[in-house]
């Protein structure tokens, strides 16, 4: 039995400057492993991954790239588009397709 989990994602920037945002609420009563895919597991993988991201020492030369803000279980991470990969990316891309809040 997992605790409930809330995931907020904002994708801002891009040449259009139009933000997209979404919220994924995973209720406590839904047993882990019975979802398709398992967003609980993916969220925890994403958190571990986001905690280990190292920002490059020099300012990146990329312009107009998306910037991602992820809040997983109250923990904030801001990640440039090119560093968001793997489970964190899969999760983030899923959440912004959901109608959470504008």
């Amino acid at each position: 039995m997992s605790e409930s989990l809330r995931i907020r994602v904002v994708r801002s920037g891009g040449v259009a400057g139009i933000s997209r945002r979404g919220i994924l609420e995973l209720p406590a009563q839904e047993p882990s492993g019975q979802q398709d895919p398992d967003w609980f597991t993916m969220a925890h993988q994403a958190l571990n991954q986001l905690r280990s991201i190292q920002e490059p020492a020099t300012a990146p030369a990329v312009r107009d790239a998306f910037t991602w803000s992820l809040n997983i279980d109250g923990e904030d991470h801001v990640v440039p588009d090119q560093l968001l990969v793997g489970p964190a990316r899969t999760l983030a891309e899923h959440v912004i397709t959901l109608r959470g809040s504008r």
Binding site: V62, D64, A65
Partner: peptide, 9 residues
Amino acid sequence: YDNAFWDGT
């Protein structure tokens, strides 16, 4: 993909 960007090169 909903974007265009300059990647530094």
